[in-house]
Structures are given as C-alpha cells and as structure tokens.
Design a protein around this nucleic acid. Sequence first.
DNA 1: AGTGGCATGTAAGTGGTTACATGATTGG
DNA 2: CCAATCATGTAACCACTTACATGCCACT
Lengths: 201, 201
Amino acid sequence: MNVTALGYVLLGLLARESRSGYDLAQNLRRPVGFFWAANHSQIYPQLARLEEEGLVEHEVVDQRDRPAKKVYTLTPRGRETLRTWLVEPLTFPTYRDELTLKAYSLWLADRVEAARMLREHAEEHRAREAVCQTYVDDLTDHASEALTRVDTPEFAAYVAAQRGVSIAREARSWCLWVARLLEAQTPLTEAQLRSLPMPPS
Amino acid sequence: MNVTALGYVLLGLLARESRSGYDLAQNLRRPVGFFWAANHSQIYPQLARLEEEGLVEHEVVDQRDRPAKKVYTLTPRGRETLRTWLVEPLTFPTYRDELTLKAYSLWLADRVEAARMLREHAEEHRAREAVCQTYVDDLTDHASEALTRVDTPEFAAYVAAQRGVSIAREARSWCLWVARLLEAQTPLTEAQLRSLPMPPS
DNA sequence: AGTGGCATGTAAGTGGTTACATGATTGG
DNA sequence: CCAATCATGTAACCACTTACATGCCACT
C-alpha cells in the first residue's frame, strides 16, 4: 500500500468532504494548491489507484442540469492511512529553487537588469502573500470559534495558510535585500551585508 | 537551444571553474546542492547535451595516480547563455511542500505525536541552518574584500547561502509555532494564533 | 587478492506536464 | 447551432531517482 504525496493530498481533501475528481482538481488551485499542485490528468488515475487499495470509494451521482459525476468518499481504512502518515517523520526536502540558483551566478549578471528581475519577483511574492492573508482573514472572521481548537479542519487550514504567508514574506524579504545590494554603491559595508530581515533562530 | 535548470546549474559551476562531471557531482552536494540537487546519472548525459549545443567543451586530462577525467570548460557562448538567463523573469514556482501538506490534515492527527514530529523536523532545519551559516561565516572570514563587490563569485555564493539560512529559519519558526499550538491548552487565544514570528512584509 | 575512492556511463521506473480526446448539458 | 462549462479519461514527453555496470588506480 504505497500512497504517493498526491494520494495524501486527495485523502486529505476527501477527509473534509466527499467530492468528484473534477471538484478535487478545482479545489487543488486554492488553497491546497499553494503546497501541492496537480492537474486532472494526474488526479483521475490517482483516484483509481486509491480505490484499488480500498482507501476511497466512489458512487455515481446523476445531476439534472449537468453530466453525472463520480463522488469519491474516504473509507475508514483511508482515514487510518492518512492519520498514520501525518505523524510519520518527514524526509528533509530537496529544494529545487530556480531563484537561488540564479543568485549563485549573479556575479556575472548586469546589475541593473538583475535588480529589476528581483524586484519584479518580489512583487509576485507580495501578491501571493496577499492571497494567503485573505484566506487567513476569512478564517479568523468566519470561523474564530473553530480556530480555538486544534482538531478542526479550520485550524489546520489556518496554519497551512499562515505558512503560505510566511514563505512569501521570506522570499520577498530576500529578493529585496539582494536587489538593494545590487543597487548600492560599492564597496558594500558590513552593515549592508548583514541587513537581511529574518525570523529569530 | 533549450537549457534545463540542471543545465544552468552546471553552467554556473563551470563559469567559476572548469571541472569534470565527477567533480560537479561532488560540488552539487554543498553548497549549490541546497538549491538544486542532482546525481551523477543525470549530470553526465546533461554535460553531453550542453556540449552538443556548444555551451561547454571537454578535454581529457590524464592523471598519474588516478583514472583520466574529462574536464569541462564553459564556452563564450555558454557564458552568454547563462548571463541572458540570469535576468530573465522567473515563472512563479509551484511549491511541493510535504510539511504544509501534512499541516492541512493536522486536525485528524494525534496532538502529542504531531507536535513531536514537528519538533523533530524543526531540529533538522536547525542543523541545515547551521551548515549554511558556517558557509556564510567562512566567506565573511576569508573573503571579506570580495564580498564588498557584487561582481565576485564570493558575493553570489554569500547571498545564496544567506537564502539557505533564511529558508531554514522560516521553516523552523513555523514548525515550532504549530508545535506550541498543538501542545497548548484549548481554547487557544487570539494572541497564540498570531504569535508566528515572521520577516516584515 | 580485496577494498575503497575515482571516474564514467546506461537502464528501468516514477511523478508530473502538456496535449489529445470524448461526451453531456446549458444558455445565447 | 455554437460556445462554454462540467466531467472524465488517455498518450507522449521530460526530469529525476534508483539501480546496474564497468574500469582505473592505490593501499593494505
């Protein structure tokens, strides 16, 4: 019973609510898609595999105004599999970060162009932060009671969305810091080199 | 001339110094490997492709005490290709973060076990931060003059290594924040929910 | 003779992306 | 009738991982 990461994404969504493959594909844009994206071409075969292993079941539901759909539901076994996986130790992730990759060769680049690229990228992270923050705010406004208990889906969504904010801010801070260094007059001072804002270690 | 991210990793390393495929594989552990890891089985074919496209060249170098090696060198065309790519806009990355994925289903988990898992993971990020910080300190100690100019390989390595520190801290802060919430007495207060340390937005 | 590090490759399998393909149903 | 959305799938390709495979050279 080898469940892939995408498998756990789908189990995690179905644990909250039964859904069709189509709906799962839609919900995989916001908010979960911030941490694991997938296309429908991957989702349909994955659901079939999960069903083979008895972790989900489906039921065909006819709709008046739309084509019929297969609604998938988590089985007790699926729920147990998900619960077990949750607390298993994580293998340290191998980052594949094109941004830092570029940074490593930045000494070759045109300073002005490079600073512009970094500021543009920082702007995209600002936008992403705003989307995640909106999600956080919605939860605090409309589910403040659920957030006081850690066993609610809302609490889990809250901490995940906060991670989105946190990651976006980290990326943005770093981009702007490097951009400032590139735009500064050389020689750079020690203070400038140390001025990257960071969460406390 | 479609160069992949791994291609640019290799071009970036060869821009600093000519090396064999074996050496590239070794150097791809620390420090660049923090942002783009690769095995030798990927590197050798990739070098061949880069050579086909005229971005690198190789020369067989005999060694007394060891087997001969193919030393690859960046061509002027390879250098230009790298320089152009550096300032091109980045496509916003699709995160694949298993940690936040687990967080999204955390409401189902055993609180104590989940907090333990998060604290263990935080510890790994602390170790990663230390490795990156050591690299930063080495540069500040032994290449402080080079760091005052943005057109030195040392400066680029410095900002990349600082990104490593920054990412590790962000992850660690978030893990510990969630662990504290899981361990706290419910109901959680607003202050607890807002207590995630972050860089300024 | 065996082990271990240096050095270079190929092959099989997996996960993900992009594109192809089909059909139901509604609304203009 | 046509376009758009809902709904479900398959096929081709690519990057990456893991395993297999070979050979050189030094040291014990």
